[in-house]
Design a protein around this nucleic acid. Structure first.
Length: 285
DNA sequence: AAGCCTGTCAACCGCAAAGTG
DNA sequence: ACACTTTGCGGTTGACAGGCT
């Protein structure tokens, strides 16, 4: 079937977005919500194609975007999820609230792929999961230092083979996570566009962070490699370093966060080479 | 100081899935 | 069921910045 181009290129701007364009797009979405990308530029007064607007919003302007360097915990999770899911950047991003698929993809390509490749060369096994790591990598400036440390770190990494076959990624319903309150208080966000009926709704079960915050923090502290304890049920934020963010504990669809932690723990618990043929096998180990 | 090299990241492109009438 | 539109995804590109020679 013939596919119409997303926009006529005639007269439309391309390249970096100006502050004015950002403002126009943000203000429009603030009022009208996401979606209808094809018509959005005209209505918002932008000389951009809808696709470009969507990308700009999803990857840069969304209020729930988490700024700053990828923390070592996030990096660890990316590596593990990539070993499970492959280049399913959107799926990986859904499990890192506040991070975009583009950001994770770029981070992987510029930082992690080389490290993982290095470990493969060192220990040529099939799909693998880095079980231990002892470095923290954040941002460009540290890259060369990390590269310098690659060989020593890799040598100390304990590699576990985890080969899992998954069906092709399917689109996930919107609102895989709620958003931080930043003035877009009532506008949900996800990687796919909500239907009109869903627009501007935050799932009722997710709207009270205070209710689940201490439990999640305690659980994360228990399950992660981060040391420290929670005092009187309150999170000890210092345990998570400067990269700690409220968004680390933003609720995810249903018990998705529990599942992530469960998967994460499973990976940590692998003591021997295990080849798995399905995701269910992983969960049943 | 100038030129080159390399890494990063925002943005683009094409395709496929999902949605709609 | 079909044709067409819309949306989302992953690969790729190119501008830019910083480091190196």
């Amino acid at each position: 079937m013939g596919r119409a181009p997303c926009c006529s290129k005639v007269g439309l701007r391309t390249g970096p977005w100006s502050a004015t364009e950002d403002t126009l797009l943000t203000n429009y979405i603030r009022v009208h919500g996401e979606g209808h990308w094809r018509n959005l530029p005209k209505r918002a007064g932008l000389l951009r194609c809808g696709k470009s607007c969507r990308l700009r919003w999803m990857n840069y302007l969304r209020p729930d975007i988490k700024r700053g360097n990828i923390s070592s915990d996030e990096e660890d999770l990316i590596i593990r999820l990539h070993s499970l899911l492959g280049n399913r950047w959107s799926l990986i991003a859904k499990r890192l609230p506040g991070r975009t698929d583009n950001e994770i993809k770029n981070y992987w390509n510029s930082n992690l792929s080389k490290r993982v490749e290095t470990s493969r060369v060192t220990q040529p096994k099939a799909a693998r999961v880095v079980k231990k790591k002892n470095q923290s990598t954040n941002g460009k400036k540290q890259k060369s230092n990390n590269d310098d440390n690659d060989s020593s770190n890799t040598a100390n990494e304990e590699i576990t083979k985890v080969k899992i076959y998954l069906p092709k990624a399917v689109k996930v319903s919107p609102y895989s996570f709620a958003i931080r309150s930043t003035g877009f208080d009532n506008m949900g966000s996800g990687s796919s566009s909500p239907s009109d009926g869903e627009k501007n709704i935050i799932r009722s079960n997710d709207t009270n962070p205070v209710a689940w915050w201490p439990d999640l923090v305690e659980e994360k502290a228990t399950n992660s490699e981060v040391g420290g304890s929670c005092r009187n049920g309150e999170p000890s934020l210092a345990n998570y370093g400067s990269d700690f963010s409220f968004l680390d504990f933003v609720p995810i669809e249903g018990n998705m966060l529990d599942e992530i932690i469960g998967e994460y723990q499973q990976l940590l618990n692998f003591e021997e080479d295990v080849q798995l043929d399905s995701f269910e096998d992983l969960l049943s180990v």
